[in-house]
C-alpha cells in the first residue's frame, strides 16, 4: 500500500470535468480530499491524499498530467522559514497531524512536511509568520 499527499493545480478549462472520479475509478485509487478551492478566474487547487498500489499510483499521476493538470507532492508547497522561526511552539497546539512538534532534546520546533495535510492552521497561529504554505 502506497500513500502520498499531492497538490493538483488546474486551469479553467478542466473545472467542469470529473477528474477525481475518473482517477479513482480508472486507476483503483482511494482518495481523501484535504482541500479544494476554485479561484475567481475558475482556476483552482485540490489537495488529496492518494492511496493504492504503487503501480496504480504512478499510472494515476501520469493520467492527471496527461489531462493537463499540474501535480506535485504537498511537501513541496509547505515550508518552515528557519530565518524567521523563533521556536516558540505556538503552532504545535494547532497542528492536527503532528507535522509540527518539539524536538525533545533541544525544544526546537521541527516541521515534517510529509505529515502536513496543508490545513494552514499554523500560518495564522504563528506570530512571526514563519510558516509558508503556497496552495494558490
Amino acid at each position: 500500500m502506497y500513500s502520498k499527499k499531492i497538490v493538483i493545480r488546474y486551469t479553467p478549462e478542466i473545472v467542469q470535468q470529473p477528474v477525481i472520479h475518473l482517477l479513482a475509478q480508472k486507476h483503483n485509487l482511494v482518495f481523501n480530499i484535504l482541500k479544494a478551492r476554485i479561484f475567481p478566474r475558475r482556476e483552482g487547487v485540490i489537495v488529496l491524499e492518494l492511496s493504492g498500489e504503487k503501480e496504480d499510483f504512478d499510472r494515476g499521476i501520469r493520467f492527471l498530467k496527461e489531462m493537463g493538470l499540474q501535480v506535485e507532492a504537498l511537501s513541496k508547497s509547505v515550508f518552515q522559514n528557519n530565518e524567521k522561526c523563533v521556536h516558540c511552539g505556538a503552532c504545535t497546539g494547532f497542528c492536527p497531524t503532528g507535522a509540527l512538534s518539539f524536538e525533545i532534546q533541544t525544544q526546537k520546533v521541527l516541521f515534517d512536511p510529509e505529515k502536513c495535510n496543508g490545513c494552514e492552521l499554523c500560518v495564522s497561529a504563528c506570530p512571526v509568520r514563519a510558516m509558508e504554505i503556497n496552495l494558490l
Binding site: G89, G93, P127
Partner: peptide
Amino acid sequence: VIAAPLSSYYKAH
C-alpha cells in the same frame, strides 16, 4: 487539553 507555549524555551536556553 492540548498545551502550547508562546514563549521560546529554545531561545531562552
